[in-house]
Write a protein that binds this DNA or RNA. Sequence first.
DNA 1: CCATAAACGAGACGGTACGTCTTGTCTTTCT
DNA 2: AGAAAGACAAGACGTACCGTCTCGTTTATGG
Lengths: 221, 221, 221, 221
Amino acid sequence: MAAQKSAQSAQKPSGQTDHPAPNATRRSEKSRRAIYDAALALVADVGYPRTTIEGIAARAGVGKQTIYRWWSSKAEVLMEAFLDLGEQAAQAAGQEPYVIPDTGDLAADLKAVLRATIDQMTDPHFAAPARALAAEGLVNEPLSREYVAKLMEPSFQLYVDRLRAAQEAGEVRPDIDPRIALELFVSPLAQRWLQHTGPISYEYTDTLVDYALHGLAPRAR
Amino acid sequence: MAAQKSAQSAQKPSGQTDHPAPNATRRSEKSRRAIYDAALALVADVGYPRTTIEGIAARAGVGKQTIYRWWSSKAEVLMEAFLDLGEQAAQAAGQEPYVIPDTGDLAADLKAVLRATIDQMTDPHFAAPARALAAEGLVNEPLSREYVAKLMEPSFQLYVDRLRAAQEAGEVRPDIDPRIALELFVSPLAQRWLQHTGPISYEYTDTLVDYALHGLAPRAR
Amino acid sequence: MAAQKSAQSAQKPSGQTDHPAPNATRRSEKSRRAIYDAALALVADVGYPRTTIEGIAARAGVGKQTIYRWWSSKAEVLMEAFLDLGEQAAQAAGQEPYVIPDTGDLAADLKAVLRATIDQMTDPHFAAPARALAAEGLVNEPLSREYVAKLMEPSFQLYVDRLRAAQEAGEVRPDIDPRIALELFVSPLAQRWLQHTGPISYEYTDTLVDYALHGLAPRAR
Amino acid sequence: MAAQKSAQSAQKPSGQTDHPAPNATRRSEKSRRAIYDAALALVADVGYPRTTIEGIAARAGVGKQTIYRWWSSKAEVLMEAFLDLGEQAAQAAGQEPYVIPDTGDLAADLKAVLRATIDQMTDPHFAAPARALAAEGLVNEPLSREYVAKLMEPSFQLYVDRLRAAQEAGEVRPDIDPRIALELFVSPLAQRWLQHTGPISYEYTDTLVDYALHGLAPRAR
DNA sequence: CCATAAACGAGACGGTACGTCTTGTCTTTCT
DNA sequence: AGAAAGACAAGACGTACCGTCTCGTTTATGG
């Protein structure tokens, strides 16, 4: 939910009537940036459903065809804009931001990361497009796969790595599958955020970590 | 494009220009049923985004105004259709279906319920509208609140009840908040289903229950 | 389903994707009038090529679909608008305007009618749409046939009638075909007007009539 | 309607934003020919309205800018292509084709020329662009003036010359203005051809010549 | 005989209009 | 009065061309 790697090349001219495939070397960087900015701004301003390709084009000062030439839907535009936003943020933040700290105290480390995640969810610049893409993904499986692969799995991998380190340190049982384990605290937070199934607070995520690490059942005698 | 009333009751004449408010006693039951059926069928057939109010009206053999008179959006229509579907199923299934069994073995009971949930998620009659409503909810908070209140919280309450029984039986620590605890196994499954973040299987949900009950950390000293 | 009542004549739902055929009895008279007015005004104001269906719709305060529902092209719209303009003018002018006078002096009568025709050609309200329709017709044969049948042939018939009367009065040779004869003076004027092949004046049309009636060759000895 | 003289040089870099004015000596003859051919072929194949500058460029294997560098509109392109076609035809036909024969029998000579004109009108290679240019001219006065000056007046001049010879030979009354007289038979044919106001045949043009020469009115006193 | 500047092919760009589709409102007619 | 039917104003969709503007690549002298 945080890391955004991306392969910078990756043209995807899918969907259109089979035009000869545009020449990416001639692409206008200025227009691309303007489109990203306009898409993100519109989603934040008027919401995803009322964000239109015409609106993005108008706000970016760009012809509609320039959008259709490079993307196949507003969801694709927003996806790339959001990925780009992540890269921008990453570069601005400087080095090695995307590792979960390892202080030797797993519980503390996880609580810290989840608190940071809550902060992201609270930032409208991040939350509006993330939520919009998630919504679109629910109903558009290819987009969902891309969303998961580019935005969620990289973050999940960080948890996997930290949990494996914890296993080696003896803080987590060796038979635990980290890829499943991480969902015990990540998924509840995601669901509360996306579906408004409950309030979100630091206390809540701290509790999730405690429950997940020590279990619901009483400790053995 | 007028006042948004807010839900609380059963009729929702919200949205329209202030017409005298339709008289619900004269409402055509036949039309309502036809609209429900058409909405569910279309969502299953062509997907939610390509389901339109015009399409529902045409398929139901109903005037568009008959839809706009009683609902404010296709999401509202689908919500009621889906709720109705649930009631139908409940009546068909006969008595007391909505309790989590209490065999005295919490783990087994939870695993059984989650397996049944997987079965539901696999049934297209259920999955298509449920997913569509979830998607709409991500981006439409009032609808989301209704969705949670009418469809999710009642289910969650069953888990809360079962977990409280388990607490009294000493199977769950007394300091655990059941409302949070249930998310340890429910949310991961929901996320995998909705966002395709991983495969779903009986084995997976069994694992979730085990991890949640016994925790990730080693038990013994 | 949709009964086609429509008293006056000639519906042409040609061209569109086969929509169920609109019900003409429900048609908005107000919109039709607004569309006629807008089309004629735009052609006069900005010229035919820069008159667009979007422009007509906007100026008429009408949705584009309302135009596409009833006409298949801007040329059809303009044709009907122009025909309607003619009917309006006819009604305003009162009774029986459309006969060539018969004073017993054929030359004088023809000269008078041609002078009136020049006056029409000079009136921008008439000239702009007439010229536009003629231009479109050159390159769009079905429209041209309609233009000729509805606008030109009725006028030509008046000349035929007058020339036949002249034949009976001995003013025109009996072996002359009036349908061809009328072109000797009508076509030159039309060509000068449409193609700017020469100046137009009362003197010019008077000359045409004289040449046509008495021939270019010297009178027999 | 037949002779095509042309002024051989005639650069017209009008219209563009003030680029340095292209150097005509470096112009690619190959491209020009390809553009002419493409324009004529497209007008014949798909009709004038669906002939586009992009289409011409693509068919000619030429960049769009090469067209915009030398012409200001598709009408200009077509005009030059058509003029060039005439020159080609003239050179192919060899010497002195562009005179109306003078056999001493004016009626016979005119009938022969008009029959030849009908043959031209029937040839699609000639008819399609001629009609297209006429159509454009109806609505584009500068083009029309060019069309008349370059394509029509030269032909008309041939009639004027022949009629003057006839006046000297006593076959035409000396007070007749030949420039007007020629329209008595030329314009009716042109109108029938362009506007489909009637069928075209040798018999028809023969009749026109007879009517024009001898008049509609009875000869004898 | 090469240097250099133009015309050239290609095609991306900001735009406008197209003709279609759907929305939510309004109106007519039937029951 | 509710409902079926569907016309209506509005406006977004995705496509086609417009005319302008780069990009390298010929090509054709003229230094």
